[in-house]
């Protein structure tokens, strides 16, 4: 059974159809890149998979391990192993990063019927992951993402990914706003999480990110559909020729 199966998905926002019958199958262990021009519906797809309010699904379905994902609340999806790394992680003043991480991890574990982490075990785990991502301890004491640079916010997303151990990671424009050094640290963090039990969907506008996170499959989206799929060579082709040909095709 596929980990994620998106079948003929149609989505509207404010009476405007954004996705017009999108299909995508992702198996465990695979890394898929979704590329496409601005406004092609890439972020909409990531939001609908994570359960963000404000999108109306008018047709098609999304199955996760064979279960109907669209019937689940965002927190249920999270507990089942869906993780969205946000393009723009929000700042939450007054909620310490450490408190947030522990509350989230224990909420997910509780929903799965697992025991909560003890404080020492939790601290040990967070510190180890934070060290590997070059995240200083004082960042963990601050409010969630408050005063973090763009690179720090993205690293905080990857920290959560490492901590929650989801089976499906969706990375929405992870490279936006990052310089080359920040990008390399973030990509190393992501690569360390690649595993035969986990799949990743990397959404990006630029081929650059795919030099660091090398995908198994590349899909090109245009005007709310996947218009072409291939292997990593497709990304290089796009870099050379641009998206215009696909916009015409769509």
């Amino acid at each position: 059974m596929a980990l994620l199966e998106v079948k003929d998905l149609q989505v509207r926002v404010d009476d405007r159809e954004i996705l017009h019958g999108l299909s995508l199958t992702v198996n465990k262990g695979e890394v898929h890149a979704i590329m496409g021009p601005n406004g092609s519906g890439k972020s909409t797809l990531s939001h609908v998979i994570a359960g963000k309010p404000g999108y109306e699904v008018t047709g098609g379905e999304i199955l996760f391990n064979g279960e109907d994902l669209l019937e689940m609340s965002p927190d249920e999806r999270s507990a089942k192993g869906v993780f969205l790394a946000f393009q723009y992680p929000v700042e939450i003043p007054g909620v310490a990063t450490m408190t947030f991480l522990r509350t989230a991890l224990n909420a997910q574990r509780k929903a799965r019927g697992e025991s909560e982490f003890s404080t020492p075990d939790f601290l040990k785990k967070v510190r180890a992951v934070a060290a590997s991502l070059n995240i200083p301890q004082d960042m963990l004491r601050r409010g969630v993402n408050v005063g973090f640079s763009g690179g720090e916010k993205k690293r905080n997303e990857i920290l959560q990914m490492a901590l929650f151990e989801p089976s499906l990671c969706i990375l929405d424009e992870m490279d936006s706003g990052l310089d080359i050094d920040a990008l390399r640290i973030a990509a190393d963090g992501v690569n360390a999480l690649r595993s035969p039990d986990r799949a990743m969907v990397v959404i990006t506008h630029y081929q650059r990110l795919l030099n660091y996170i090398v995908p198994d499959f590349v899909h090109v989206m245009s005007r709310g559909r996947v218009v072409k799929s291939g292997d990593k060579e497709l990304a290089l082709e796009l870099e050379a020729s641009g998206y215009t040909q696909f916009e015409d095709a769509a």
Binding site: I92, T103, L105, F164
Partner: peptide
């Protein structure tokens, strides 16, 4: 939404905020 996407129920997310 950010908190719910991280596993907090609606009430838990509200309580934290």
């Amino acid at each position: 939404f950010y908190l719910r996407a991280r596993g907090l129920s609606e009430k838990e997310a509200q309580a934290l905020l």
